[in-house]
Design a protein around this nucleic acid. Structure first.
Lengths: 211, 211
DNA sequence: GACACTATCTTGACGGTGTCAAGATTTTCG
DNA sequence: CGAAAATCTTGACACCGTCAAGATAGTGTC
């Protein structure tokens, strides 16, 4: 161990403590960054550790395995998605129609701006979701948020008054499915040449609205 | 090399030739089997090779890399999906409504019976789809098949006569999205306790049908 | 039939990966 | 202050995708 260690560090940065201070979140953030930069295939525990400035085994003090880190990243993604959904819909507290339209657009926007995080959240990379309660909680909370909007629309006569939970699933499924197909390049060029995924989702919602 | 090699092999099995004869397909099948048994995480080139009874590097004579094997497996999956869609809809050549209903159910059935193949086909594990023309061709052919059914329904007044390609995307997206959410455990228990994914998809289609 | 050519397959190596065990360092707390 | 717990490092292991070199078998040509 060479000398160099300025204990005169008042703090203005985390600045290399030997116990880092907040490694857990640093690892999650490093993971998100690598995800955005190199995609799912480029996400390795060792790279995450390196980017956070710790040794390759350090993450094991905070996550029992790689799946657990992925769960944390996914959970973080859901938190952000929920927050954005909530922010947008809160702008129109008495206008469920607007909530539905703008909420679905927020969903699309999130998927586009965080493509690989979105994939990790929904594309089965996380294999045993049931083992991660925090993940389950926020993901179901998001679901309940969607159900709430649909229900409000039904109460206002804007959507069919069919069983609201089923309707919520089919509407969410529609938005989600169009995005998923779009991201995987499944939507043939003849369609995507003229319309963006955003447009297609907007169109789908229009078709559902009664008044 | 011990003795044992019955050159008196009239053929009733591929039976260990030293040039195997059909390694390429054997590798694809081995991949599908491992996928079904161990999931995407368990799929490695070396395991595929071992299951096919060849050395760990043998696959490189047929596939330039792992992605290429995955592309072949996905392509095979799309071929099967297309065949099943085609088989079902061919049963009702003059009944587009039935085609829509039974076709969507066939889609769900395929996803359920081949969950991991389905995931590999749609979940972004294959990273550069555009590099695999055979994959693109069959996947777009499947898309065109769906468009065809929707168009027939529109012509028959069973679905709204909106731009048929957009409508096809939104309907396919709906089916696909409900399945995807269901497979990822995103659909809250209160819904799934009473309804299967099949039921939800059937419900969604019902809602779309005009007459 | 002999020979060259090519496709196919094996062996062995490389760096990268997830994970674990052992130990060092730091923080926490009695 | 000192023990216990949390955190981090080092080093190892088996597995992975990939490549290079060579062995083996099939193909076509004279």
């Amino acid at each position: 161990m060479t000398v160099s260690r300025f204990s005169l560090n008042i703090s203005p940065m985390p600045s290399k403590k030997y116990h880092h201070g907040d490694l857990k979140n640093a690892l999650i953030n490093a993971g998100v960054e690598i995800l955005a930069k190199e995609g799912i295939g480029g996400l390795s525990l060792r790279k995450v550790a390196q980017r956070a400035g710790v040794s390759h085994s350090a993450p094991y003090a905070h996550f029992p395995d790689k799946q657990s880190l992925i769960a944390a990243i996914s959970t973080e993604g859901f938190n952000q998605l929920y927050a954005e959904l909530d922010a947008v819909t809160s702008l129109y507290p008495y206008d469920p129609k607007k909530q539905l339209i703008e909420g679905s657009q927020a969903y699309v926007r999130f998927a586009m701006n965080n493509a690989d995080t979105f994939k990790i959240m929904f594309s089965g990379v996380l294999e045993k979701e049931k083992e991660y309660p925090a993940f389950l909680e926020i993901s179901h909370k998001t679901f309940e948020r969607v159900v709430g909007i649909v229900q409000a629309c039904q109460d206002a006569g804007i959507l069919r008054a069919s069983p609201s939970d089923m309707t919520a699933v089919t509407i969410w499924g529609q938005i989600h499915g169009v995005i998923a197909l779009g991201m995987e390049g499944q939507i043939s060029r003849t369609v995507l040449e003229h319309r963006s995924v955003q447009d297609i989702v907007a169109f789908a919602i229009e078709q559902l609205i009664l008044s």
